[in-house]
Structures are given as C-alpha cells and as structure tokens.
C-alpha cells in the first residue's frame, strides 16, 4: 500500500470535549461475545473512523451507540455509554428520542420510496421540529445543501428518491439524517456501494459535516479513514486494539496488529 496516496487530514482542528464516552462495553449475540470490553472517547466536531477486518465488530459497536441493536432480540449489551454524561442505556431513555440525537446513515443507500422532499422532511415531521410549511421547506433545502445534493435535485424535489443514482441516494440519506439536526452522525460504511466519484463527493461532505456534528464512520478502506478522519479506532476480533489520532495510527502504530492490518498483512 502506498502511504503517499493518503491525504492525511490535519488533526489540529479544535477537537475539544468528548461527545460520547464508552466504558467497558460488551456486546453479545447469544453466546457470541462480539465486542470485548471496549472503551473509547468520541470527540465532538471531529470525524472518528472505525477500521478493522470484516467481522471485527466495528459495525456492531457503531449500532450500539444509538441502540439500533435493540431491534435484534438476541443482542445483549453491557457497560456504560455516555452521551454528554448521560447513560444512553438508562431505562429512562427512550431509544426513539436517542436516535433523533444520534442519527445514522447505512451501508446501502436506503431512501424511502417517496419523493426527495418527503424523504428529507420525514424526520422533522415526525419530531415536530417545524411549525410551518415554509420552515419545513427551509429545513429541507438546508439539509440538501449540507449533503451537497441541492443543486442536483432542486428542480425535482417531488420526484421519487429511489430514482436517483446510487451516490445521490446516499447523499439523500445523509440529508435525511442531518435534517433532524442530530448531535452525532453514525455512518456505517457509507461509501461501500458507491463508485469512486460518488465516494469522493460523500467524503468531502463528511469533512464538511464535521463543523456541525460529531461524525463516526465505519469503513473498510484505510485510505478513506486516512482521508476523512481525525481519530481512528482499530478493531480486531471484537477488541479495540488501538485508538488515537489518525496520523499516529497510520504512521506510527503502537500495536503490531494495527501495523499488520494497515500494511495489508491481515484482513
């Protein structure tokens, strides 16, 4: 792997306080211990990348952060996950309310089979975020702009969202996720179904989203992690092997497994 290809992002952005703090998280699927004692601090206004070989638990861990794993009956989570100091696994927490704060973008673009407008407006509508049609229009427009999709779709907002190309669909899903103004945006391999051009667009977008949100991205591509993230966590067989500044991880990994992975020897 040619390390020179990586446009390593400058890590000197003001990554101030911790947004999500996970302490001793264990996840079990039935008898399978999928996540083993993971502790990680996810910073605000920064992009954190989770990398690791397939099946290492990075997506599972991502899904515990907004309790999407609740929908899987055999899944069991232990440990503490604090969102700004509040435990998201507290019995008083309604996962629905949590997910409005911690949005998610999935691996495969999954727009609703509705119009582009309705796709973006759905979140604000169900959460009652807007008081009038004009306000809703504004939210839709600004969300589509944030997702760098506005110019392409502004003339056909009422065309079906499923009629867009793959990259556009994924950006639509991102617009849909940011429309509810979440504090954290979780992205589960958002570019794995996209071509290089669409990938570049989405990556650029992720970099811009960092100014407003805390972004966590799971990716298979180490180049991508290098390009978009400030912090990188390397997972292997359910363990968090190494976590630190992206530049550190890629240029000077402390753990031999990390080094083996980024140099392509395992994975």
């Amino acid at each position: 792997m040619n390390m020179n290809d990586m446009r390593l992002t400058d890590a000197s952005v003001d990554m101030n306080q911790s947004k999500i703090s996970a302490k001793g998280v264990q996840v079990y699927y039935g008898d399978n211990h999928a996540i083993k004692d993971v502790s990680v601090e996810i910073l605000d206004k920064a992009v954190t990348a989770f990398i690791g070989p397939s099946g290492c638990g990075k997506s599972t861990f991502l899904r515990t952060l907004n309790r999407m794993n609740d929908t899987i009956p055999i899944c069991r989570v232990e440990g503490k996950i604090l969102l700004e100091g509040e435990d998201i696994r507290d019995p008083r927490v309604d996962p629905v309310q949590l997910r409005a704060k911690v949005g998610m973008v999935f691996q495969k673009p999954n727009p609703f089979p509705k119009s582009i407008y309705d796709n973006v407006a759905y979140g604000p509508r169900i959460h009652g975020l807007t008081r009038s049609k004009a306000e809703l229009d504004e939210v839709v427009e600004s969300s589509l702009k944030k997702a760098a999709l506005w110019n392409e779709v502004k003339d056909r907002l009422h065309a079906p969202g499923t009629g867009l190309s793959g990259g556009q669909q994924q950006r639509l899903c991102i617009a849909r996720a940011v429309a509810t103004s979440p504090e954290v945006l979780l992205m589960d391999e958002p570019c794995s179904a996209l071509d290089p051009i669409a990938t570049a667009q989405v990556e650029e977008l992720i970099d811009e989203l960092r100014t407003n949100f805390s972004v966590v991205i799971v990716t298979h591509s180490m180049q991508q992690a290098g390009r978009v993230s400030q912090k990188t966590a390397f997972f292997h067989l359910g363990n968090l092997v190494e976590y630190g500044d992206t530049t550190e991880i890629f240029t000077n990994p402390r753990d031999p497994r990390t080094e083996a992975y980024i140099s392509g020897r395992i994975g």
Partner: peptide, 14 residues
C-alpha cells in the same frame, strides 16, 4: 426490505 425499517428507526421514528 429491513433497510426501510432501519432507515426509519435510524432517524428516530417509533
């Protein structure tokens, strides 16, 4: 498709 359910749950639909 379950992806539609995920999409809706992911943006905080009940």
């Amino acid at each position: 498709p379950p992806s539609i359910r995920d999409a809706a749950l992911g943006i905080g639909a009940s």
